[in-house]
């Protein structure tokens, strides 16, 4: 694994301890998850014990220590989306891919995640696929979304 990116990311953040979360975000963006080697390098560069880096990486929802799929599908579970039936959509997607939230399909195509409010409450229920917002979702639209994602994987 090429960990030279880590040095650059940390340098861009001025090697500051108070930028740890931001650095981890960028490391995750680089590798699509947080592998051990880069984290060890972050620990070294920032002077934060690896145990602490690991704690932070597992504490926050945004981080994944497992490789994520090519496509990330996030179902907003905020209150506004909940009252408009987000739970049912989530279940539909779970059925569609045969995985539960937090997992990645076997072909590493799709990672399904839940998020607590993306701040687009007026659009609820919202599904975010690779940072693209799909608002006012219903069963039929979701079914189409699942199909689209499946074709992307082929």
């Amino acid at each position: 694994m090429d960990i030279s990116h880590v040095d650059k990311i940390c340098k861009d953040h001025g090697n500051r301890q108070d930028q740890l979360i931001g650095i981890l975000q960028d490391v995750q963006a680089q590798y699509r998850y947080l592998p051990q080697k880069p984290l060890e390098r972050v620990s070294e560069l920032l002077g934060i014990p690896i145990a602490q880096v690991f704690s932070v990486a597992t504490f926050f929802r945004a981080f994944s220590l497992e490789p994520r799929g090519k496509n990330v599908c996030q179902v907003c579970m905020g209150t506004a989306c909940h009252v408009r039936g987000a739970q049912r959509l989530l279940e539909e997607i779970e059925r569609g891919f045969g995985i539960v939230a937090g997992q990645t399909t076997k072909d590493a195509n799709v990672t399904l995640e839940t998020v607590n409010c993306v701040g687009a409450c007026a659009l609820g229920p919202v599904i975010v696929v690779n940072e693209e917002y799909h608002g006012r979702m219903d069963g039929t639209k979701t079914a189409k979304l699942i199909e689209d994602l499946k074709t992307k994987g082929e």
Binding site: Q36, P49, I50, A51, Q52, V53, F54, S55, T58, F59, L65
Partner: peptide, 25 residues
């Protein structure tokens, strides 16, 4: 030595060595 820490959060919280592997420190 800062060798160990908490992992996860909420009701999943546990004490752990980094990456659940050997606590290198």
């Amino acid at each position: 030595a800062n060798a160990i820490g908490f992992a996860q959060r909420g009701s999943h919280r546990k004490i752990s060595s980094p990456f659940y592997h050997e606590a290198t420190d």
